[in-house]
Design a protein around this nucleic acid. Structure first.
Lengths: 260, 260
DNA sequence: CAGTGGTCTAGACCACATC
DNA sequence: ATGTGGTCTAGACCACTGG
C-alpha cells in the first residue's frame, strides 16, 4: 500500500509551478503532526486521555506506523503529549505530571528544597486592556480583561506577587471563589475550567525597585530590588492567551534556568 | 549480521546476578551515543570538523545505519553536533553557528534589535578559589583560579559586568592581551585556545542593589536594582569548568527566556 | 555524478502494563 | 495472553551538496 492516502496526496505534489524559494516540501510525518495538533486544538481528546494507538493512527492516516511514530515523537518533544510505554500516549495536562510541575515555574528556594508554593488570591478584577497588554495578547485596546493578583507562599512566606491578565472572552465566569477553591496549579485550573491549555511561554526579566504596595504584600522594604518577570503564555498555534507580571523577592529565592 | 559487535556485547548481558532494580538495560543507540560522546571528549574530531558518515560509523560499531542515526539524533538534540543535509554531521562549535549565538547569551535589547554586544576586558587576575566557587567547580578550596572581569557593550553602552572564574589548571597562559585580541565570543576563545568546550550551563538569577564599583562601570547610580546572573558552565560529562557572576543593568535590556 | 543526511516503509523482536 | 510503546534492522527512495 504505497499510501494512496488523503494526507499523502497533500505532499510535494505541485506541478512545475513557478514557485521559487519556499520549502515546497513538508515531510509526511510533519504533515501528520500538524493534523494531530489540529485534533488536539479541536479538543478531540481531553487532557490526560490517551490518544489512539500508533497502529490505529497509521491506518487512519494511511501511512506506516513508523511515520506516525515520528510525528508523535515530535509532539512529545514539544510537550504536547506524553508517552508511557505499555500504556499509550496521553494528552499533556497541567493537572498531573508531577515531574514537569516546574516547567512553568522557575522560581526556586535557595536552599534547594523542591517545595511547591501555595497560591493565595489577593483580588480578581475586571477591566479594559491597555495598549501594551492588548498588543501582547492580540486584542484590541479596551477589550475586556480579567486581572488576577495572587501571592505565592513558600513555607508560609510570600516570595512572589503575580498580576495575571486574561482575555475576558476566554475566561467567562472566572471568580475569586472558584480560583481559591481549586487545588493545584493555575494552569491546571485554566485547563479544566475553561479548556484553555498553556503549552509555551516567553519571559522577560528585569530588576526593579519594589513599589510600596508590592513591598507590603511581600514583606520587604519599599525600594528593595525585586525580580520582575513578564510572561506571555501561548496555546496551540502560538496564540497568546495570558500576560503575567511577577514580582519576586530574591532574598531566599532565585530564578533558575538551565541552558542546553 | 545480527551485531556480534563490541558495543552490542555490553548490552543487557548480565547473567542471573542478584541485581534487583536498576535499568539493567540501555538501548544500543544510547550506548553508541555514549561512545561518540567519549570520542568527542577525547578530541577525536575537532570543533567544526565533520564526524564520519553514518554508513562508516555503522560499520565501525557493527550496527545498522538506523541505529547510528538515532544516536546522532540524540547528540544533535543535545547540541553536541550539527547535521547538515548533503554535507555531513559536524562537531558543534562556538566559533561559527551564527544562529545559535544566543544559546548562552540571554540578555537582549528591549527594542528587539538582535545586536551582538562587544566585549571589553576590565582586568584579569590570578588568585585562590573561595569555598563557594570551589564547591561549584569541584575544586579544593584554595586551588588556583583565574578571574576575568569584562563589560558587554551594546551600541557603545555597557549593560553587563561579568566576573568569570576559571580553574587555572585548565586555562594556562590566559592573558588579558590574548583575550582582548580574540574576535568572537568568549566560549569560542576557550574552545580554540584551551580546547575547553562549554556545552551546557545552569543560571540562577536574583535582583540586587548595585555596588559602588559595578555602578560606576555600568554608568548607573549606586543602589540601582541590577539583575545578578550566576552561571555554572559544563563540558562533556557534566564537568563544571566555569563560574560566572554577571551584573546587568535592565534599563534598556532584559533577560529573555523561552519556556517550552 | 557520487556522497551525504532525510524520509518512508515493513517486519521482527523487546520491555512494560494490564487483565 | 494481549496490547501498548520502544528498539533494531534492511532497503528503497528523496533532497541537498559539491566536484
Amino acid at each position: 500500500m504505497p499510501r494512496p492516502s488523503p494526507a499523502a496526496t497533500a505532499k510535494p505534489a505541485g506541478g512545475p509551478a513557478a514557485l521559487p524559494a519556499p520549502p515546497a516540501f513538508r515531510p509526511l510525518y510533519l504533515q501528520i503532526k500538524d493534523l494531530l495538533v489540529r485534533s488536539l486544538d479541536a479538543r478531540e481528546w481531553h487532557p490526560g486521555e490517551a490518544i489512539p494507538s500508533e497502529p490505529v493512527l497509521a491506518a487512519r492516516f494511511g501511512v506506516s506506523q513508523g511515520t506516525v511514530r515520528k510525528a508523535i515523537d515530535a509532539l512529545a518533544a514539544d510537550n504536547l503529549v506524553v508517552r508511557r510505554q505499555g500504556k499509550g500516549t496521553f494528552v499533556a495536562t497541567h493537572t498531573e505530571e508531577a515531574h514537569s510541575t516546574f516547567r512553568f515555574l522557575h522560581i526556586r528556594r535557595d536552599d534547594g528544597v523542591d517545595e511547591y508554593p501555595a497560591s493565595r488570591i489577593v483580588d480578581v478584577k475586571r477591566g479594559k486592556s491597555g495598549d501594551e497588554v492588548a498588543r501582547l495578547l492580540g486584542l484590541a485596546p479596551g477589550d475586556a480583561v480579567v486581572v488576577v493578583r495572587r501571592l505565592l507562599d513558600w513555607d508560609g512566606a510570600a516570595a512572589v506577587l503575580d498580576e495575571i491578565t486574561l482575555p475576558a472572552a476566554l475566561f467567562r465566569g472566572l471568580t475569586r471563589a472558584k480560583l481559591a477553591a481549586y487545588e493545584g496549579s493555575m494552569y491546571g485550573f485554566f485547563e479544566t475550567a475553561f479548556g484553555v491549555r498553556m503549552i509555551a511561554a516567553h519571559e522577560r526579566l528585569k530588576a526593579v525597585a519594589a513599589p510600596a504596595e508590592a513591598a507590603a504584600l511581600l514583606g520587604v522594604a519599599p525600594g528593595t530590588p525585586l525580580l520582575e518577570v513578564d510572561r506571555v503564555a501561548f496555546t496551540y498555534g502560538g496564540r497568546p492567551v495570558e500576560f503575567r507580571r511577577g514580582l519576586c523577592s530574591t532574598t531566599r529565592h532565585h530564578y533558575f534556568n538551565a541552558l542546553g
